[in-house]
Design a protein around this nucleic acid. Sequence first.
DNA 1: ACCAGTTCTTCTCATCATGAGTTTTTCTCG
DNA 2: CGAGAAAAACTCATGATGAGAAGAACTGGT
Lengths: 273, 273
Amino acid sequence: MVDDGMRRDEDESDFLAAYDPHAFAPVAVTVDVVAMTIRAGEPLLLLVRRGARPQRGRWALPGGFVRAEDGPAGPADPDLPDAALRVLAEKTALPTTLHLEQLGTYGARDRDPRMRVFSVAYMLLAPDLPDPEQGRDIAEAAWVPWRALGHGGPAEYEPAFDHARVIADAVERARAKLEYTSLATAFLPPLFTITDLREVYEAVWDRPLHAANFHRKILAAPGFVEDTGDLAERGGPGGGRRPRLYRAGGTTALHPPLLRSAHDTRGDSDDRR
Amino acid sequence: MVDDGMRRDEDESDFLAAYDPHAFAPVAVTVDVVAMTIRAGEPLLLLVRRGARPQRGRWALPGGFVRAEDGPAGPADPDLPDAALRVLAEKTALPTTLHLEQLGTYGARDRDPRMRVFSVAYMLLAPDLPDPEQGRDIAEAAWVPWRALGHGGPAEYEPAFDHARVIADAVERARAKLEYTSLATAFLPPLFTITDLREVYEAVWDRPLHAANFHRKILAAPGFVEDTGDLAERGGPGGGRRPRLYRAGGTTALHPPLLRSAHDTRGDSDDRR
DNA sequence: ACCAGTTCTTCTCATCATGAGTTTTTCTCG
DNA sequence: CGAGAAAAACTCATGATGAGAAGAACTGGT
């Protein structure tokens, strides 16, 4: 099967053309995970402080090499999502319910000084995650507020490599998908109230919503939430009616969508990665 | 810099940990392109008949290895979009205007019998593309109607590998993005009429639209299209008012979106790739 | 027991978007 | 010049939306 190497320059026109693996320049494939959660109305994402060169000491997304084959480091990752969960599990405890979704792959030639590296980024949403375990191979890991990153936040958190770009893409993806999918429930435990759900939207969109209209629209979207018939233990700390408890419905696509009204859909970049 | 190979199993926690490239199992990165166009109201995509084993003779997406480094086959691809355009250019002439967007990356262990292959899929939209050049390294290339693929079409076109899945993802992505972005203009030449635009929507969504309401909604979405002030040469073949010519506006996000009304948003799969 | 304050839920209403159909304008062809 | 065709504008009933008000159910303090 391994026959002619790279003799004809057209012969690599598809990925099963014959070749000798070691005739190719070495490339690496990694996964980076943008793990997002919401705690007390504040959207957070997980960053680790790099313990290895280069960029040692800078904050970065948790990530690691995809294990292509079984080896001394452990068994191969059967698929990319498995690799994403594995590298995240090395940094923090995984929640029982989570939403994992591929964001995109970044492979510019100058991303890494040493070799050609392709990074597959994943977005992971989960209800209030525990604090990361310290130690292990990483110097430090922390849940960082979204707003501390990006535009003019403390330079302390300026992420390594092109991770600022990846994070910006993830945030924009999450914001957009709240409009037309039931993604918001991924930030919540199995049982939640309409107010809990609204607070997710307010946190991610960073804007207050009209509670009464939100309530109406959620119940109008078929399959978004399902009434359990039960009520929560208590209302607010200072009294208040006990809210109904809902669970996520079967639908992922919302009809009609919950649009963030008109203005600013900023950051809608052209999609060439 | 190259120091300790894979001694500690935590040490590959991020992609710049020290390593010896050849200590890793060889992996390959390819790009596959779902090139879409519309001809006479019929949505088409480009398939090539495989000239190499395995699956020789089956139809597949045009694709090829990403060139990680400069080599005998040619210069390295600076970034993934460059690789996508290069492999497509090997099969057909590239249009002057196009929309290129990353779809996702597929990396299941059993995708390829020979080695671990990660395929980055791209979606390319362009106005009526020319017929592919025959010959070169591919046995055959053809523009195939979407409807000939997928569910119960002629088995002749059953695509190789997991390309049916990639194509299905691309079609669903295109259908969805027509709702809330100005993507449809990518199928059209620089100057077009509202009717041209409506025919794109009808072709992609495979359903007739109410012409008058469509017209109203397009003009109501700020920044979608821009009036040139000019009129087209003639109306229909059998007479008719000369339509206004528009060009694409600056906006990519549509407010309000053009929803395909209520029912069927079928094929909304969970996003784990 | 009652009341004030709080929270969830439902209701009203003016406004805007939508689907369906009709009419007007402008063109070609015979 | 008139019939037919296509684009564009209009009408109207219905449904969704934003803003606010009102009702219901609860807590804690008097």
